[in-house]
């Protein structure tokens, strides 16, 4: 249990998707104009990461890894399909996103309207594929750990986008130098927030 909490806290704070790896920056910068849409997109990312990381974990361990196909029979023990992992992961992610899109369209049309183009773009949100690839690289030992890692990364991303959206709503009232308005100042704020998040870096979990 303690191990799971560690993985979660590490994924949220120490290895935050945005502040430590800059994954999912495109939608982070584009959808952080208001807190409301930011919350919607953040929730969608938590959901998609929470589902796709465990599914990709199963795929990795029972299909792709060297020797993972051993359950089919002894002649498959030496098969190594890991070079296919990019294409398999992205296929899982794209189909899951399609599913989430249909669910949201059906049950929360207002949110669907607000998220607009960025819902299909979750498929190409780097943090989702990044979650799958980090899961592969760090070789979590069982599916619970993988799902906790996925959820934690999603929560970290959610926190980051909601925080920046709140700041951007307020910064409208400040006098920013003209060339820095919009994109520039958002970069600087994200950098400063990243420095703040680096205070978690030394923590060994």
């Amino acid at each position: 249990m303690q191990e799971l909490i560690n993985i979660f806290a590490k994924a949220v704070f120490v290895e935050n998707m945005i502040f430590a790896y800059f994954l999912g920056m495109c939608s982070y910068l584009a959808v952080s104009q208001t807190v409301k849409t930011a919350v919607g997109l953040g929730a969608a990312v938590i959901f998609v990461l929470g589902i796709t990381v465990p599914i990709n974990f199963l795929l990795e361990n029972y299909v792709l890894q060297e020797g993972a196909l051993a359950w089919l029979g002894p002649q498959f023990e030496t098969v190594n399909l890991s070079f296919l992992s990019f294409i398999m992961f992205i296929a899982v992610i794209a189909s899951m996103v399609q599913l989430v899109e249909m669910i949201i369209e059906k049950f929360a049309p207002a949110l669907y309207g607000a998220l607009g183009i960025f819902l299909p773009l979750i498929a190409v949100n780097c943090s989702i594929l990044g979650g799958a690839l980090f899961m592969q690289e760090r070789a979590y030992s069982n599916i619970t750990q993988a799902s906790v890692f996925g959820l934690g990364s999603g929560v970290g991303w959610f926190l980051a986008i909601v925080a920046i959206a709140a700041i951007r709503e307020k910064i409208r009232y400040s006098n920013v130098p003209a060339p820095m308005r919009g994109l520039g100042i958002t970069f600087v704020i994200t950098g400063l927030m990243g420095i703040a998040f680096m205070s978690f870096m030394g923590i060994k979990l």
Partner: peptide
């Protein structure tokens, strides 16, 4: 070398670019 400085470097590039190319400046 730390990650946040990458953001700030890009912000500086944006600043310089937009100071020279004023039609790129955003409203807010």
């Amino acid at each position: 070398l730390l990650p946040p400085m990458a953001l700030i470097s890009v912000a500086l590039i944006i600043w310089v670019q937009r100071a020279y190319n004023r039609k790129l400046i955003e409203e807010n």
